[in-house]
């Protein structure tokens, strides 16, 4: 393969992860937080697959596949929560959803 080495992919993956974490920490709408979460997961997936290619072992890709499945499940539940919140006329604001305060 004459493309970029695995290091470049890893930088992209790290950047994706950082962008996603910024979104999680700085946005108030749970919807956007979920989307940012997806970006983070995808960053991790990219790293896994890059390493799988580097090492020549398919286990990394298997891992990434499992991550995808779990991410899908998590999104389903998260969206269900958001819908439930909306149904109860709660404000869609993570700062206001602080019922777990100690």
């Amino acid at each position: 393969m004459s493309g970029p080495g695995v290091g470049w992919y890893l930088i992209v993956a790290a950047a994706l992860f950082g962008i996603g974490s910024l979104g999680v920490m700085l946005r108030r709408s749970p919807l956007i937080v979920l989307l940012s979460l997806e970006i983070m997961l995808n960053g991790a997936n990219l790293a896994l697959i890059a390493f799988a290619r580097q090492v020549g072992d398919l286990d990394g890709q298997i891992f990434a596949l499992a991550v995808m499945a779990v991410a899908a499940a998590e999104v389903a539940i998260g969206l269900g929560l958001i819908v439930a919140m909306a149904r109860r006329d709660m404000a869609l604001d993570v700062d206001q959803a602080s019922a777990l305060r100690g």
Binding site: V24, M25, L26, R28, V33, V94, D95, A97, S98, A99, L100, R101, G102
Partner: peptide, 9 residues
């Protein structure tokens, strides 16, 4: 207990 602010962010 104050650490547990309940704020996700």
């Amino acid at each position: 207990a104050r650490v547990q602010s309940g704020l996700l962010r």
